[in-house]
Amino acid sequence: MFRDFYHAFYYSLLIAATVLCILFFKNAQRPFRLLAVLVVLTLLSELTAKYVAYILHNNNMVYHFFTPVEFLFYVLIYQQFFSSKKWNYILWLCFAILVFSEIFNTIFFQPLNVDNTNILILESIFLVAFSLSLFIKISESEYHQHLLKEGIFWFNSAVLFYYAFNILIWGFHSIQVYNLKNPPMFIYNFILVFSGLLYAIYAFATGLNSIAVKKRRLNHE
């Protein structure tokens, strides 16, 4: 499992994030509970991918299935944050586009044994757009608490950073492959480091939310 530092870093952070998310799940609010489930599902998908790789020597198909599932969770989470009819419509439309694109992409461009980078880029574009929109919504709302103490800020910042870099990384990857060049190893290491940090921040955001909810509950009592 831990064949080098980057893998060890990624899996350690993912396992730690999963454990923390499970611990914080009880007190967290609904969007952060969904986030916690997403982290747990990510670990399960990674374990499944490892198993499939062991059996079939190619685990790309796992990501073909997991990407729409992951995006579904993001849609559900952003639906909670936006809580408006207009955004419900936009989010579900994006989800439908992504699922359709995944099928189309799998049939015509990137079959199950190839990385679904096209869909990863599409997912990243959607998520960056959601993240920026949520920042706009936050800036227009009347929050009184310090933003750095809010789980929503850390979650959304992590999405923005990670998926913006995802576009760059997978874009670069696609250009290299399109030009029949071998993508350098370091971009996979980048992905591992960023992914590990992403899930760690998700756990941190869930923890912040859980603590805030607990504090509010204690104050009410």
Binding site: F172, N179, I187
Partner: peptide, 23 residues
């Protein structure tokens, strides 16, 4: 596939830095 050249890596790193700075 061919091996990637150093210019591509430089462009990638440069783009990465710009994206990071922008974010």
């Amino acid at each position: 596939l061919l091996q990637i050249n150093s210019t591509d890596v430089t462009v990638f790193v440069f783009a990465g830095i710009i994206v990071l700075a922008l974010l």
